[in-house]
């Protein structure tokens, strides 16, 4: 692109930049600026209303973080939640996608039904499930007690281990359909001819799945995994509305803990350090996925 570039090309180039610029600026304003601001805040002490000037304190907040048990707990909760929900969502998602890809009567309605949980806002979802999980007058315990499966009410959200499982179930129920949707799109782009060729070569259904479907689904699966993992690592509305991080701190995710530090205790600087660490965790996870995606070619 040197001397030979025509005026027309150059004008096209400027037009292109012109079209992209507003988006870039908006992204810079709402994405890059807060990230930079959080990093700056995390290295200093300042008051929220600006009455006291910013004072650089280096890694003080980070060393405080390392010595805060509640931070490690929140990190553990976040990683556990991600590790439980993502594989389950993937398996259920593939299953749903394969099912929806078959032709049967009422396929349209089935597809709509699968999408329904995904369409509901998480907060609403969490409140709905909190009601169903309620130990004293919830749906699940009513069923469990009446059918004789349990002789005592099960405290779905009040037991430390059970609360994490209960929360994961809600996440899996809600977001498997998102996985399914992306995978279904991938499924539909696989040429029919490949299956026909496979059938001529005498492949079984399982072989078809292993050797045609799965390899060609790798890209959409990775995309779905990246999006969902990032979501899971940032999970906030679900524990906030379902358990408020409880019992004790058994479901207190990093986002929820950061929120409490920032909005309950109004400690913006320590909260910023928390958020930066969370950012790094997500960033590292993204790098792994990006590496995996690149490997594909």
């Amino acid at each position: 692109m040197t001397g030979t570039t025509s005026t027309l090309d150059r004008r096209m180039q400027w037009t292109g930049i012109g079209f992209v610029a507003p988006t870039v600026l908006v992204i810079a304003a709402i994405l890059v600026y807060p990230i930079l601001q959080s990093i700056v805040l995390s290295f200093g002490d300042s008051s929220i209303d600006g009455s006291e000037p910013y004072r650089f304190v280096g890694l003080a907040h980070y060393s405080q973080l390392i010595h805060t048990g509640r931070f490690w707990n929140a990190l553990g909760v976040t990683l556990t939640f991600t590790a439980i929900t993502i594989p389950c969502e993937l398996l259920v998602g593939i299953g749903l996608a394969l099912l929806m890809n078959e032709s049967f009567r009422g396929k349209g309605i089935a597809r709509l039904a699968v999408l329904f949980p995904w369409a509901l806002p998480t907060a609403l979802n969490a409140l709905m499930w909190r009601w169903m999980y309620n130990s004293d007058y919830g749906l699940f315990n009513a069923l469990a007690l009446q059918s004789g499966l349990a002789d005592r009410p099960i405290n779905w959200l009040g037991d430390q281990t059970l609360a994490m499982i209960s929360m994961s179930i809600v996440a899996i129920w809600k977001t498997s359909s998102f996985m399914a949707l992306i995978i279904l799109a991938g499924l539909q782009s696989i040429p029919r001819e490949l299956y026909e060729a496979g059938r001529m070569d005498g492949m079984s259904r399982w072989q078809e799945f292993r050797q045609i479907t799965l390899p060609l689904l790798k890209a959409p699966i990775l995309v779905a995994l990246i999006v969902r993992s990032m979501d899971a690592l940032r999970t906030f509305e679900l524990p906030f509305n379902l358990t408020d991080g409880g019992p004790v701190t058994a479901t207190e995710s990093l986002s929820l803990y950061a929120y409490k530090v920032i909005f309950d205790f109004i400690e913006f600087n320590f909260g910023a350090a928390l958020v930066v660490v969370q950012f790094l965790v997500i960033f590292a996870m993204s790098l792994v996925y990006i590496f995996l995606l690149r490997n594909r070619d």
Binding site: N134, S135, D136, Y137, P153, N155, L157, G158, D159, T243, G246, P247
Partner: peptide
């Protein structure tokens, strides 16, 4: 009840 550990005023009232 065990649920007292996740009960707020209105849950108990109910």
């Amino acid at each position: 009840p065990d649920s007292i550990l996740n009960s707020r005023p209105d849950d108990a009232r109910t």
